[in-house]
């Protein structure tokens, strides 16, 4: 593999006594769509601001194309940012907002006009070049912000919660647009988001962050199917945490209060306390036959599936997704099946 475009090594940052980033190391490749995902206060925005140059790390290095960026001011970094508030210049029209970065780079009037025209077309704003910013809708502002950040052809585009201000319907549409624009421009996108759906939908790879640390870096499928920690499993998607003790004799299984669940033991020792994370849709629901017995305590119709809350022990309720068409009533007794590899075994967190 060639050298990554962005390389973050051991970056730490404190604000007073508050630790914002602790020993963060990450690589982002050229042309990659990368997501920094985590709850608010996890340090994802601070990390992005360090990359843009608005904050400087207390320790560690950030390098772009093998060039160390420490001490390089924001205006000399070949990285552009799309702000959560969009930060469009209210005294300039749409055209001049997009041209702002180009004018700083110099270049002929014709070249700038052509580039702005290109971006206006790409973001479907061609008719709006002469509009003032306060005459635009939220979605249009979002597109101007994107076009403005892309105009100087940055090596990397940072997007701070780019869809947070849009309503739900527009958000989905914009997700596709973003992905398309990223594919067309071949620019590395690093998106900061607290919305797991957004990260899963957009990113090639996701870094899940918690309390200033990176918990896992992987592709969306792996994050979802093979979460590295209990936090990742719980933050990304819905899951059941089943506690028990590992039994490696014969077919490995987690021995829980309500029964044995087959699992891949990894390198955990026999008898270790562990937690199995199982997604609701990976649990098979049957009316009778093999499996762990329980009864339906409650259910929520979700369209594609019906989410059942199944009580399997006195104080253990599992969530399982039943396929569309199966009808269940409160109080029905059911059998839950755990196919091999349905869950991910997580070591007890120390």
């Amino acid at each position: 593999m060639s050298a990554p475009l962005l390389s973050i090594k051991g970056v730490s940052k404190k604000f007073g006594a508050v630790v914002a980033l602790e020993e963060v190391s990450l690589d982002v490749g050229a042309g990659e769509f990368f997501a920094l995902l985590g709850p608010s206060g996890c340090g994802k925005t601070t990390l992005m601001r360090c990359i843009a140059g608005f904050e400087s790390p207390d320790a560690g290095t950030i390098s772009l194309s093998v060039v160390d960026l420490s001490g390089v001011p924001p205006y000399r970094r070949p990285v552009n940012m799309m702000f959560q508030s969009y930060a469009l210049f209210p005294h300039l029209n749409v055209f001049e907002n997009i041209a702002f970065g180009l004018r700083r780079q110099g270049g002929t009037r014709d070249a700038i006009d052509a580039r702005v025209g290109e971006l206006l077309a790409m973001t479907q704003l061609s008719a709006f070049g002469h509009r003032r910013i306060d005459e635009l809708s939220g979605g249009q502002k979002q597109r101007v912000a994107l076009a403005r950040a892309l105009a100087p052809r940055p090596k990397m585009l940072l997007l701070d919660e780019p869809l947070a201000a849009l309503d739900r319907k527009l958000r989905e549409e914009t997700q596709f647009q973003l992905k398309e624009i990223q594919r067309l421009t071949q620019t590395s996108f690093v998106i900061v988001t607290h919305d797991q759906d957004e990260a899963l939908a957009l990113a090639d790879r996701i870094a899940v962050m918690r309390a200033g640390r990176v918990e896992q870096v992987a592709g969306p499928m792996e994050i979802y199917d093979r979460p590295a920690t209990r936090f990742v499993a719980g933050f990304v998607g819905e899951t059941n945490f089943i506690e028990g003790r590992l039994d490696r004799n014969g077919a490995a299984a987690l021995v829980a209060e309500f029964g044995r669940i087959p699992c891949e033991p990894g390198d955990l020792p026999d008898g270790a306390r562990a937690t199995l994370s199982v997604r609701p849709e990976r649990i098979g629901v049957a009316r009778e036959g093999e499996g762990i017995a329980g009864f339906v305590e409650n259910f929520v119709f979700r369209g594609e599936t019906t989410l059942l809350r199944v009580r399997v022990a006195r104080d253990i309720v599992l969530r399982a997704a039943a396929c569309h068409g199966e009808r269940h009533a409160i109080g029905d007794s059911v059998r839950l099946n755990f196919p091999p590899g349905a869950g991910t075994l997580l070591a007890e967190e120390t």
Binding site: P74, Y75, V79, F83, S85, H91, R104
Partner: peptide, 22 residues
């Protein structure tokens, strides 16, 4: 809004240009 100045700097405006242009 302070983010306007950051946006200008991010787009390549030196501190003097941020002042004059924003």
């Amino acid at each position: 809004d302070p983010s306007l100045r950051e946006a200008a700097a991010d787009l390549g405006a030196s501190p003097a240009q941020v002042f004059l242009r924003v």
